[in-house]
């Protein structure tokens, strides 16, 4: 295989290279992979370890060499108004694992999709462990789904990450340490102890303000311009 050719989409910066080195020690196998980069944007991997099945959802990508469109970002903006174009594929994946220990995980949009997956799962052993995931619109989930997330999902959010502050979060959020400057949303922002547990931190005021502002904005748009937002989103998103 022409490694340089096959791997042209990989642009590992130093922190990601270090993460890949740490992955060398992990047990388990990638047993399935779905890639809808040319459609609804969903990308997911299934990893089988001796203890559990881990379903990993990828976060948002921008159009570029590896991804053909900005569908992830359009979907992020439109989901509160028309739902996500990725939900149908998420549900198909979820239905593949109706029993046994399953953990849904991901970062950013991947985290949000992992929470969606858990909300759709009827597997009583399913859980979600996610990172800097955005929240949900006020009416997006049923009370039963909210209860499932409250009991079986944890969202580790860097204490000043704006994305993990967005909208409503029925899942348990744990605020964790990160750098005082720079982008708190990136995966390398997390600080862990030697056992691999995120180090708790106090949530920033800015994070609280962002949450309040986005809840107000979502409610206002739904009330005043919901139909317009819905029409616009349906025009720019591909048919589900």
């Amino acid at each position: 295989m022409d490694k340089a050719g096959e791997l042209r989409c990989v642009k590992l910066y130093d922190a990601a290279r270090e993460a890949a080195r740490e992955m060398l020690k992990l047990p388990g196998f990638i047993v399935d992979y779905v890639n809808f980069n040319t459609g609804n944007g969903l990308v997911a991997y299934v990893i089988q370890t001796p203890e559990e099945t881990v379903v990993v959802f990828r976060g948002s990508e921008r159009a570029g060499e590896c991804v053909s469109s900005n569908i992830d970002w359009v979907d992020n903006v439109c989901e509160p108004f028309v739902g996500s174009v990725q939900t149908e594929e998420i549900e198909k994946i979820v239905q593949t694992y109706p029993q046994g220990r399953v953990v849904f995980t991901g970062h950013s949009k991947g985290a949000h999709n992992a929470l969606v997956a858990l909300s759709l799962s009827e597997n009583p052993q399913a859980q979600a462990v996610v990172f800097n995931g955005q929240g949900f619109a006020a009416e997006a989930l049923s009370p039963a789904q909210e209860e499932t997330l409250a009991r079986r999902a944890v969202n580790y959010v860097v204490y000043r990450d704006p994305v993990g502050a967005l909208l409503y979060h029925p899942e348990r959020r744990v605020y964790v340490q990160g750098p005082e400057t720079g982008d708190p949303h990136r995966p390398e922002a997390y600080r862990f102890d030697e056992a691999g547990a995120p180090i708790p931190a106090r949530r920033s005021l800015k994070s609280r303000l962002i949450e309040g502002a986005t809840r107000l904005a979502e409610g206002w748009i739904q009330k005043k311009g919901g139909q317009g937002a819905e029409k616009l989103c349906r025009a720019v998103l591909p048919q589900k």
Partner: peptide, 21 residues
């Protein structure tokens, strides 16, 4: 897996490698 390990595999999922896979 530990939370750190879940984050590692979440991070690596950004590597779109359909040809490799």
């Amino acid at each position: 897996m530990t939370p750190k390990e879940y984050l590692l595999i979440s991070w690596m999922s950004y590597l779109d490698l359909p040809a490799l896979y």
